[in-house]
Each structure stands twice: as structure tokens, then as C-alpha cells.
């Protein structure tokens, strides 16, 4: 995550609109992508982004500076996205995940080697749909860990702080997310390999 901000925290705290605009410019693309990947809906992602930034603006005097502004904004946005998911699917959304990896999680079921497929095969519209569907099947807790760590490039420490969990819990969620995505994609790309080999 970027270390130095293009705006002053003190100016933000005093309600400076220009500093707020600079903060919005700096962080809104990353926060939008987080919300979009969490929710899968562009309109909802924009709504969550707007609500999160408004919440941040009104709560900036409570920002204590112990974490980076970016981590704080990521936390507000991921919480907003999780709240939306809970409202939509209360029965399905569990924020908690087992701390330990079950052995059942770790044993790979799909062992087709699909890395050999031509690069074009990974870029088709159908492949993109598969990537979306696999992501959609992750629980919100796993999804958040994968997005923050692997897609947004936060460190383990930053991602754990954002989600308010321990680093070991973050690593467990990340491993579960990666393995589940791999299993899902292996079904589709494994079939593509078989089709390729047989004609």
C-alpha cells in the first residue's frame, strides 16, 4: 500500500473539502474494485463506495492514526460490503471462518494440469465468466482475504488489520480461498484441456 498520502490528515480532520477530494481521488479506484469484487455488481459497488467515503468523512475525527488511512478506508468499505451481503443473503453470509485448515480442505480433488493451455484460452469471455463464478462461490470472509492480499496487494499485516483478524487467521483464509478458486477453475480448464487433446 502507498506509504505517503497526497493530502494532509490534519486538513482532513479539520473538514477541509480539498483534502477530502484528494483522498477520494487517491483511494476510490482501489476501494471501488474491492467493493465490486465483493459484491459482483457495479451499481452496488458504487453505492457502497459512496456510503463508505461519506462514513469516513464524518468519522475522520475518530481516526486515531494508529493504522494507515488506506487500511482504515479498506476496513470501512469491506464492512459496508459485508453488511450489504448480509442483508441480501443473511443465511449464507458468515463472517467467521475456521481458524485451522481442515485436511479435507487441503486435499486437491482436481489434478488435471491445465497450465499448458494456450494463453488465448485464459482470456476468452467464457473464461472470465468462470473466474467470476468461482469468486462468487467463495464465502465473504474468504473473498475479502483473497481480494485484499492477492488482488489489492496489501501485506499480510495490512490485510489482517483491515479485517481485524490475526495474521495466522488471514493466512488460513487466504489459503482456503486460493485452493477453492483453484478447484473451481480446474474443473473448467481441465475440461478445456481434454477438448483440446481430443480434437
Amino acid at each position: 500500500m502507498k506509504q505517503e498520502e497526497t493530502f494532509s490528515i490534519d486538513a482532513l480532520r479539520s473538514g477541509d473539502r480539498e483534502a477530502f477530494a484528494a483522498m477520494v481521488d487517491e483511494y476510490s479506484p482501489k476501494l471501488y474494485r474491492l467493493a465490486l469484487r465483493m459484491l459482483g455488481d457495479p451499481q452496488e459497488a458504487e453505492d457502497v463506495l459512496q456510503d463508505s467515503l461519506l462514513k469516513a468523512y464524518h468519522a475522520i475525527d475518530k481516526f486515531e492514526g494508529r493504522s494507515k488511512v488506506g487500511t482504515w478506508l479498506y476496513r470501512i468499505t469491506s464492512n459496508e460490503a459485508l453488511m450489504r451481503l448480509r442483508k441480501k443473503q443473511p443465511a449464507l453470509v458468515s463472517v467467521d471462518e475456521p481458524i485451522q485448515l481442515d485436511k479435507g480442505d487441503m486435499v486437491p480433488r482436481q489434478l488435471e494440469d491445465w497450465c499448458c493451455l494456450p494463453e488465448d484460452e485464459f482470456m476468452t469471455a467464457e473464461a472470465m465468466v468462470q473466474l467470476d463464478q468461482a469468486m462468487e462461490e467463495l464465502s465473504p470472509a474468504l473473498k475479502a482475504a483473497f481480494i485484499l492480499r492477492d488482488l489489492q496487494g496489501l501485506s499480510t499485516e495490512e490485510a489482517a488489520e483491515t479485517l481485524e483478524i490475526s495474521e495466522s487467521a488471514l493466512k488460513t483464509r487466504l489459503s482456503r480461498a486460493r485452493l477453492q478458486l483453484r478447484e473451481s477453475l480446474s474443473i473448467y480448464f481441465g475440461d478445456r484441456v481434454k477438448e483440446f487433446m481430443h480434437g
Binding site: 479506484p29 471501488y32 474494485r33 486437491p108 482436481q110 489434478l111 488435471e112 494440469d113 491445465w114 497450465c115 485464459f122 473464461a127 472470465m128 473466474l131 469468486m135 483473497f146 492477492d150 488482488l151 486460493r178 485452493l179 478458486l181 483453484r182 477453475l185 480446474s186 480448464f189
Partner: peptide, 25 residues
């Protein structure tokens, strides 16, 4: 089996990251 598992795991992460890099607002 583990070789395939690790290779496809790395490819999985690569595919998501690659798509993210091409993302446009």
C-alpha cells in the same frame, strides 16, 4: 500431483491478478 497442484494454484492467482491489472473504471 503436488507439482500440478502448485502450478495450477500459481496460475489461478496469476489469472485473477492479470485480469485485475487490465481492469478499467
Amino acid at each position: 500431483d503436488c507439482r500440478v497442484m502448485v502450478d495450477t494454484l500459481e496460475k489461478t492467482i496469476y489469472l485473477y491478478r492479470n485480469r485485475e491489472e487490465r481492469f478499467e473504471l
